[in-house]
């Protein structure tokens, strides 16, 4: 019991980490797209819990709101709109890239393991002060992120807003039916 209390944070971390990885594997392992999507949702929530464990409250909230809320809804929309039961499995395509995917996955795993072994384990992990302090003044996590985002990182933040705008333009350009001259009376584009 004493062991449990003394190492509560670690035990909680390993439980959450196990559930995160298990649900991530579930995303690719489940045959039904709805189950896979639910598994993904569970994975997002677990990551949010991991953020909470590191005292990154804002990140945890954003993780739940943006990923668990917004992005999951889009995933589910697509699954509902496309009649998944009628889709055939593309056996040839998948078996063709399977070796490549395995090699890529193993490479990625090695890279991340490398980073963990040489980085985190060698230097130990911090106490999370950096997450809630700006220029040495300790304030809350949310205030710290806000202060840094709207002062030092203002330029990247504003440029990201243009990135999102471009993404919207991209969706419209690719989503509309013709070449974009229908409003102008130009009709569709040449199909040749």
């Amino acid at each position: 019991m004493d062991f449990l209390i003394a190492n509560f944070a670690e035990i909680l971390f390993y439980c959450l980490a196990f559930l995160t990885v298990a649900s991530a594997i579930g995303v690719v392992a489940f045959k039904s797209p709805v189950h896979a999507a639910l598994s993904l949702l569970f994975c997002f929530v677990m990551v949010a819990a991991l953020f909470l464990l590191r005292h990154a409250e804002l990140l945890a909230a954003v993780q739940v709101l943006v990923y668990g809320g917004g992005i999951m809804v889009l995933f589910l929309f697509v699954i509902m709109l496309v009649n998944v039961k009628d889709l055939k499995l593309e056996q040839v395509f998948l078996s063709g890239i399977a070796p490549l995917a395995v090699i890529g996955g193993v490479l990625l795993g090695v890279l991340i393991a490398f980073g963990l072994v040489f980085g985190v384990l060698a230097s130990g992990h911090g106490d999370g002060t950096a997450l809630r302090s700006v220029d040495g003044d300790e304030i809350g996590n949310t205030e710290a992120i806000g202060a840094v985002l709207y002062t030092k990182y203002l330029v990247p933040f504003e440029v990201v807003s243009v990135v999102l705008l471009v993404a919207m333009i991209a969706a419209i350009v690719f989503g509309r039916r013709s070449a974009g001259l229908e409003g102008a009376g130009g009709g569709g584009g040449k199909t040749s």
């Binding site: 440029v159 990201v160 990135v163 471009v166 991209a170 350009v173 690719f174 070449a179 569709g188 199909t191």
Partner: peptide, 22 residues
């Protein structure tokens, strides 16, 4: 800022490459 600039450039260019969607 370097990375964000790179992404803005790259994303615009991806769309331009596929601009002739037909």
């Amino acid at each position: 800022s370097l990375y964000v600039g790179l992404e803005l450039m790259a994303l615009s260019v991806y769309v331009l490459v596929g601009y002739f969607k037909l």
